[in-house]
Amino acid sequence: MSQEVQTIEKVSEPLFSKKNRKLLTDPLNDNNPITVQVLGICSALAITVQLKPAIVMSISVIAVLALGNVIVSLMRNFIPSRIRIIVQLVVVAALVILVDQVLKAFVYDVSKQLSVFVGLIITNCIVMGRLEAFALANTPWKSFLDGIGNGLGYAAILVAVAFFRELFGSGALFGYKIIPDSWYIANGGFYANNGMMLLPPMALITVGLIIWLQRAKNTKLIENA
């Protein structure tokens, strides 16, 4: 019986079937890790003051998620279920150390800005959540797509929040001045940067506003009271 099912699966699964594409696109909106599952909030609050660290962080998380998912998926039939969390942690920790070394080698200043938050990817709920909920039960290719999808969903929110925080908090994007100097009150203009945008509460409020917007557009997310 089980053999039959397996053969059927093997036959009817093109690389980018509709189901597989859904793995990639679902986490972008309907099942976004931050705005719907509300996971990985801590790093979203901590490193979204500027766009550059937010993007580097996003890439790191995507890499760890995708690779971790693939590795755990490959091992899924050999991991004793009692010690699966420890095995997952070892995999994730190894990947995070790799990412950390790469960042230190190539973008040292950003890596300093991110400080402990790269190391804290190990405890990012999204990573553990996907390993537990998806990679342990699915094939490597599907797990890879799922990892990329969830990483992109995380990245989309991070970049959106960082965009608004850097634009209104520092008047810049990627460190380049957007708002002309002559607009500032000190230079005889009328404008001032919003200092609250640089504080973590504003990241929480921005995420909240994004959730609000998303639910207004996507009414199936609204729970029945």
């Binding site: 001032a192 919003n194 200092g195 609250m196 945008m197 504080l199």
Partner: peptide
């Protein structure tokens, strides 16, 4: 409170 934290120098 918003004005206080957003525009402290004013």
């Amino acid at each position: 409170a918003f004005a206080f934290f957003a525009y402290p120098s004013w």
